[in-house]
């Protein structure tokens, strides 16, 4: 098992590591030199402009620390605000995303394997996913009253379509040879679905899940901006209304970090789960 893991890792990284510390320094410099340049230029420009709405990065970082990292070390310095702002929104986002993913994958695979049934619902699906989710926020607000339900509804409605369509596509385009083989060796319906169709469709399902995760973050923010009393989006709105522009910038930066981490974690999981596919025809 270990040998396999090693040989696979070796296959992914074909270049042998060579060169000493100088080479590593050069690699870092050639890759990251622009970042300090841009930050320095931004700092200088912001100080020169001296506008309240355009604070220098140093002020933004200070504000971030003040807002979210002023807590006790036992809580990794997270402040009460950090926990109060981040947790509810993230909780809703994950709940919505997981719910949509579950329904999307199950329904998508079912429809992908049942071509005739899919014909009946495809026009509805294609129309529904073309409706921009923000159009429905007001509707959900009126329907649900509770803001948590409203936000969940916005997120679920918005992110289910990429998962559903990709799962359908994946289940529909399972290599015929795989199914023939399964039939010849007498695999039952359940096994065929779980052990053949699901893994065969997995690369497409993951592409859909990834798309829907970044969409979920967007919808979390917009739903909190429009109708919520907590969450990062709500704090962002408060900062804007209070003309706390370092706070606005800081929140955006935080959301950027969040998006980056979410995507990185997702890619990590995807690589692990789809290790057999990474070497194949990955496109996204």
């Amino acid at each position: 098992m270990k040998a396999v893991a090693e040989s696979r890792a070796g296959a992914v990284r074909p270049e042998p590591r060579r060169g000493g510390p100088l080479r590593i320094v050069w690699a870092v410099v050639s890759r990251f030199w622009l970042v300090p340049v841009v930050v320095a230029a931004w700092e200088a420009a912001a100080r020169a402009a001296a506008s309240i709405d355009f604070p220098p990065p140093s002020a933004i970082v200070l504000r971030m620390r003040e807002l979210w990292l002023s807590g006790p070390p036992t809580r990794l310095f997270l402040s009460d605000d950090a926990i109060a702002d981040l947790l509810p929104g993230l909780g809703r986002m994950f709940a919505g995303w997981l719910l949509a993913s579950l329904v999307g994958v199950v329904a998508g695979i079912a429809l992908g394997r049942a071509a005739t049934a899919a014909h009946y619902v495809e026009p509805l699906i294609h129309f529904a996913r073309a409706v921009p989710p923000p159009m429905l926020i007001t509707l959900f607000v009126l329907l649900f009253r509770s803001s948590t339900q409203t936000q969940l509804a916005v997120i679920v409605f918005g992110v289910i379509w990429p998962v559903l369509l990709n799962s359908m596509d994946g289940a529909r385009s399972v290599e015929r040879g795989y199914l023939d083989t399964a039939a010849v060796f007498g695999l039952g319906r359940r096994e065929r679905l779980l052990r053949i169709v699901l893994p065969a469709a997995a690369p497409k399902i993951f592409a859909g899940l990834r798309l829907s995760l970044s969409l979920a973050l967007i919808l979390m923010v917009i739903s909190e901006l429009v109708g919520s009393t907590d969450g990062i989006g709500y704090e962002l709105l408060q900062a804007q209304r209070g003309f706390d522009s370092p706070g606005v910038w800081a929140t955006i930066l935080l959301l950027g970090l969040l998006g980056y981490v979410l995507n990185a974690v997702f890619v990590l999981v995807e690589r692990r789960v789809l290790s057999w596919h990474v070497r194949g025809t990955r496109t996204t």
């Binding site: 967007i218 901006l225 962002l236 606005v248 955006i252 998006g259 980056y260």
Partner: peptide, 26 residues
């Protein structure tokens, strides 16, 4: 591409709707 990659990698995941309040200010 190498030089801008880290910047793009950071800018891209910012949920774009979060920029609306900032744009309203600016």
């Amino acid at each position: 591409e190498r030089a801008t990659r880290p910047l793009l990698e950071f800018l891209r995941p910012i949920p774009s709707v979060a920029l609306i309040p900032l744009a309203i200010l600016l």
